[in-house]
Amino acid sequence: MMRLRCSVFAVWILALASTPLWGDNYIVHLAITIAMYSTLAISWNFIGGFAGYPSFATSAFFGLGCYVGALTQRAGLPVSAAWLCATAGVGIFAGLFGLIILRLRGHYFAIASFGLVEVLRLVISSSDSLTGGGDGLNVPLFHGGPDFVARIFLAVMVGIMVIAFAVSILVDRSRLGFGLRCIEQNEDAADMVGIDTTRYKIVAFVLSAMFCGTVGGAYASWTGYIDPTDAFDAIMTIKTPVMCMLGGVGTVLGPVAGSASFLLLEEFFWSHFLAYNRAILGAVIVIIIFFLPGGLLGIADGKGPRASFRRSLGRWLKGGPVAVP
């Protein structure tokens, strides 16, 4: 099973990485976006999937990564060092913030994590002297033509995605992953069998933040310009968990499948139904999550989409809860 998942992932990575050979710049740009969102979704899965803590802090970590990357680069650090700073800085920030916020559970945690996005956006907007405030920041551009730069950033984003995926597999098979799944199912019982729940949750939160920071740093270098509304995007912070739900929460491959299918659907509806694309996309996602609580990967689990769909529909007609995994 694990070998199958890894081969599926490897084929997908090859498909993304080879886009410059067979696609135009639009396709390459799409591949970069998919790799970027896949990393965000894989990251979210550490805290939201394994540990079951519904985090909406993705944009906070991504945005902070953008600014740490941009500022360190402007201060004269080489690009790769700036990205490492973004990774480490965001990781440390998440650790400290996690100490406070991880005492909250369920909806309270979700609201507090969402609040973080807004607070950081406002703080960065109002710190004009350091961050340029609402005017944003220019980041040193890469030399070379658009094709060359796109290839560089495709390689970078796919590389980060592979690393995040590898870490996710390691966690899934380790004591850490086992402990996080126990926390997800019954935190008090997890405490009782000897799991240091606070420490485990903080580690998961830091893991969920680090790669968002790296991706943020890389994104800032890619676009060459960042501003607070772009970096701390409320839509991104909601898209990421939706992608995981679409693919299969708490599974290794789910976030990858979810982000890819989400973005491909988004592009498809965008190009075919310009006026109503958001409405159609929203409806399709609600239907999929409503009737396939295990996500798209739930189909591959052998029970079959039809059986799962029929069960959910039956429950819905009876007025009961639908999304029972």
Binding site: R181, C182, Q185, N186, D188, A189, A190, M192, P325
Partner: peptide, 10 residues
């Protein structure tokens, strides 16, 4: 526990 505390989906 008096009220059993399993990890239900494991």
């Amino acid at each position: 526990f008096q009220v059993v505390q399993p990890f239900p989906r494991m």
